[in-house]
Write a protein that binds this DNA or RNA. Structure first.
Lengths: 133, 133
DNA sequence: TGCGATCTGTTATAACATAACATAACAGAG
DNA sequence: CTCTGTTATGTTATGTTATAACAGATCGCA
């Protein structure tokens, strides 16, 4: 039973990559149940937590969903642009911006530990910066 | 039945203000059920949605909770600093930062509509900027 | 081997949210 | 004033997300 967990994590990550867009834990669960018919929610959540800790997966707080990290594993918090039309998610990094945020909140003695930045809108394909589709 | 809704909204807001910290919809529901014994979840959620639209309440996506807006009703997205220790939430506004974010994502044609910025950490009282409690 | 620590599996349930329909109130037409 | 369409609200039921709590397996080590 021991190394089963790593297999599950790999499979979860593969499933997420196959989706290529935000996916709920339960959707992933349904997928994985084809390979592991008796898999239960905690297993998925454990795998996802591990993957998030490893930085291989982002959790989208505003969607209660997960998405595979697209970039080559940077450690800092990502800025996630979420298209409300097609669901596509784009990652951006901006160390300076994060630092500004940290400094800003530090003024009142706050110690920033984890930044969550999610921007909803419309991606280029869905008529983003120009007109409204 | 007509103006009952406004009363509910006022009561929800009052309850949130009384808490003074992030509160789940169901906690609010339990409170309001003292006044309205048969109140059901949709009623709370409708009231909260209305209050969020009015800018009187913020939804904390990363906590699945709600908090009364502390400042005098600014329209722009707030930066919410959340103390993981005591639960206190502080609001900050930073138009320039929001604009930077918008510009950043715009580079790839993304049209920002709604910014969600939540920063987890420790507030000053809980040993924020200095040592670790 | 026997023990404890840790990881994994399983059951059950808690917590969050909304779909779908029922009912009530009100505004305007007749 | 009543009918009727529209909108707000109430209600039931259920869907969705997440975790507590315990059971069993594996492994390191004395």
């Amino acid at each position: 039973m021991a190394r089963r967990g790593e297999q599950v994590r790999a499979d979860v990550l593969a499933a997420l990559l196959a989706y290529g867009r935000p996916t709920s834990a339960y959707d992933l669960l349904r997928d994985l149940q084809e390979a592991y018919p008796k898999m239960a929610p905690p297993t998925i959540y454990r795998a996802l937590s591990a993957l998030v800790e490893q930085g291989k997966v982002h959790r989208l707080e505003s969607l209660n969903a997960f998405v595979a990290c697209q970039c080559t594993h940077h450690d800092q918090a990502a800025i996630l642009s979420i298209c409300d039309d097609c669901g596509a998610v784009e990652e951006t990094v901006a160390p300076k911006l994060l630092d500004q945020l940290t400094q800003l909140t530090k003024k009142s003695g706050f110690k920033a530990v984890r930044h969550i930045i999610e921007i909803h809108g419309r991606c280029a394909s869905c008529g983003g910066s120009e007109a409204k589709a």
